[in-house]
Design a binder for these strands. Structure first.
Lengths: 268, 268
DNA sequence: ACCTGAACACCGTTCAAGT
DNA sequence: ACCTGAACACCGTTCAAGT
């Protein structure tokens, strides 16, 4: 369980890799209605994150919500980051793990559903995309979902060596897209401006700079439609890989596409 | 220039949309060797971010590096976030804008180069992916690069309505991938553990949970190769779109793929 | 075993004051 | 025009002490 880093003051890489003293895993058997435990604290953290956002989430506010002193929480959790990891995996429990062996299941449609489900989650809990860029996201719910999607992907006929690349294309894209969308929403709402107004201002500002007049009219908000188009793009790319034609075929081909002429040593 | 939000205490959506009083844009004409200005402050910020990371970057430390009081910086910059936006666009100036009209240029190869260049940038300045999820990234360098890549994309023959979806697929993917990679690197190095050790620990931990034994052996670090595979996947998807076959064709087709059976109203 | 209070070493930012 | 010092309202976290 340990990641071998538990010397003196070293940090842990993830809550999910902690050596938790048995003593603290809840002394008496079942749930008591009185007193705190990790589940109650995590649930309160999710609630606070949902209502206040990541920036205003603090241990002191959380403790206040729980009607307890700020430092009580530290009995159950080593530090704030651990709590954020717990909260992240808790909401990821909302994801339905796709069943690759389901009757008549189409892998394309299952991938679409998984991608939209993940995006829906990141929209319902806007703070989550902020934590995804900081933590490992290897909690039980996240891993279950990821491994489930991986099994679906393998049913497409994609060679196993390419499965993780395709998974990366799918998940990194959904995550990146959600993160960008979220930062637009947050910034605009903090400024009390509609996303449309903000974009109009941006187009005007760019139009004033001579170097961008070519193309500035193409600037507009992250459109609803773009997500679908981009997703189909990724899925079509996976499909191309299954046909062995153009597509994600990394090695052993006449014209190896990876890496094609390194532009700079450190970039590839 | 203004985004219409400059009432009383409202925040701005971006530094790039500020109304900057002419008085503060540098009084006398050219550069002086003495005294501060935005360029010097931004350069110092990039230096500090590169050496210390986003978490340890503070206005007080920056001011100390500049040999000045913490509050002097606020004469040139409204708040810390503005400075981070300036630093982000400053490093994005390292990106070479592709020339869509170049002789004998292949759009696929140009897209590959752009993607690798962006990833290289995010690796040289690991803090940058952390800011990309928080700010609008609409500075002059970022916009120049993005519009340049967009022109390359259009030369593929992809219909204009799909260009932004394809751009989103490409950029969101590179950004998401870099962010995940960065969080692994940072977490492992903070714990003083190699990425490999960390993954071994994770696999062991997952193996101990009965629900993951199926597939746990598939867990391994974000591989170097995955990025290339995923990138080819996106490019193949774009190419599929240009052939009008399967691929990112959003509307007006026999079997509309977007949206296919909404799983839940809020998710699509 | 669980919770508290006081304290430490920081933050970003405001504001009145200096030159 | 530019820079400072003191202050405000917070942080995460440690630690000794309570029950």
């Amino acid at each position: 369980m340990s990641d071998g880093s538990r010397t003196s003051r070293m940090r842990r890489t993830s809550v999910w890799l902690e050596d938790r003293p048995e003593a603290r895993r809840k002394a008496s058997g079942a749930s008591q209605t009185e007193g705190l435990d990790r589940e109650k604290i995590t649930a309160a953290a999710v609630r606070l994150l949902d209502t206040e956002g990541l920036a205003r989430f603090s241990m002191r506010r959380l403790a206040a919500d729980l009607g307890v002193t700020a430092m009580s929480v530290y009995w159950y959790v080593d530090r704030k980051d651990d709590l954020l990891e717990l909260a992240l995996d808790a909401v990821e429990g909302e994801l339905e793990v796709p069943d690759a062996e389901a009757e008549g299941a189409d892998w394309r449609e299952q991938l679409r559903q998984a991608a939209f489900a993940l995006r829906g989650l990141l929209r319902r809990h806007p703070w989550a995309s902020g934590t995804l860029g900081s933590f490992l996201n290897v909690g039980p719910s996240a891993m279950g979902f990821q491994l489930g999607v991986r099994r679906v992907l393998l049913r497409s006929g994609l060679p196993e060596q390419q499965a993780d690349g395709a998974l990366a294309a799918l998940f990194s894209f959904v995550y990146g897209h959600a993160a960008v969308e979220e930062s637009w929403n947050r910034r605009c709402s903090e400024a009390g401006v509609s996303s449309q107004d903000c974009f109009d201002a941006l187009r005007t500002a760019l139009g004033a700079r001579p170097e961008y007049t070519a193309g500035a009219e193409a600037v507009y908000p992250v459109a609803e439609r773009d997500f679908g188009v981009a997703l189909e793009c990724v899925i079509a790319g996976i499909e191309a890989g299954t046909r062995g034609g153009r597509g994600p075929a990394p090695q052993g081909r006449a014209t190896p596409v990876i890496p094609p002429q390194p532009p700079s040593p450190e970039d590839r």
